[in-house]
Amino acid sequence: MIGVKTHTLIATVRIGRTPRALAFTPYGKFAYVIAGDAISNLSVNDVKNHRVIATVQIFAGGFPNDIAFTPNGTLAYVVNDSVPGLVSAIDVKTHSVTTAIQISGGETPIDIEFTPDGKGKFAYVV
């Protein structure tokens, strides 16, 4: 973590090998960091205390690429660059995978975003 006013390193949190993406929950309490190592973990970091509070195995053998939260902050969706592609939904309260959604056509997703209407009815996966 870098202090923007002072341009100095404030804290370091070890989360595993090959971090690939970072996203904050809508209310800023947690930072989710996905690591694309062989075990494909997601680290849940307490922003205030600068420490990992949970580790979630997303998908063994895949490489998670991106993460996005529903606007209400209850779910996080992680796209996995595996063949065929997979999107994992993670419950933010329990820090556990609730479901995995198969992407048809053998595509390998690299990004996910929710529609900007604030309702989170649709997530676009590319």
Results as ranks from 00 to 15, higher is better:
A21Y: 08
V4D: 00
G118Y: 14
V87D: 00
A60V: 06
Q102I: 07
F30G: 03
S96Y: 05
V47A: 00
A100T: 15
T108Q: 14
G105C: 04
I10W: 10
V87N: 00
V126A: 13
Y77G: 03
I58A: 06
G62N: 02
L22R: 07
N45Y: 04
T70S: 14
G120M: 04
A54S: 15
T6W: 04
Y77A: 03
T18N: 10
I110Y: 07
D66E: 10
N80L: 08
I67D: 00
R20D: 07
A35H: 00
D37Q: 04
G3C: 12
S82F: 08
V44M: 08
T94R: 06
N65F: 10
V78P: 02
K5E: 07
S40V: 01
L86D: 00
A21M: 06
T6N: 12
V56Q: 04
T18G: 01
T70F: 11
V52N: 03
D117M: 13
V83R: 06
I101L: 09
T99P: 00
N41M: 11
D81N: 14
T115G: 07
D91G: 06
D66R: 04
A21D: 12
E107I: 08
G106D: 12
K29C: 07
D37G: 06
Q57T: 15
A89G: 09
T99Y: 02
D81C: 03
G36M: 05
Q102R: 14
Y77N: 01
P116G: 08
Y77E: 03
V125E: 03
K93R: 15
P116L: 10
L42E: 05
K121F: 11
T8K: 01
P84K: 02
K119W: 13
K93W: 11
H95T: 08
V97G: 02
V79Y: 02
S104Q: 14
D91R: 07
A123N: 02
T70G: 09
P19N: 07
Q102W: 05
A11Y: 10
L9V: 15
K48S: 14
L42W: 02
G120F: 09
D111Y: 12
T99A: 15
G62Y: 03
I34N: 02
A60T: 09
A68L: 09
G85H: 01
A60L: 11
N72M: 13
A60N: 09
G105L: 03
D91L: 07
V44S: 08
E107R: 15
G61A: 00
S96T: 15
D46Y: 04
T25G: 07
K119R: 15
S88L: 01
A100F: 04
V97W: 01
F69L: 13
I2F: 01
G62I: 02
I15L: 04
I15T: 14
T55P: 05
N41I: 10
F30M: 11
S40D: 08
I112Q: 04
P19F: 05
V56W: 05
S43G: 06
V33C: 01
Q57H: 11
G3P: 01
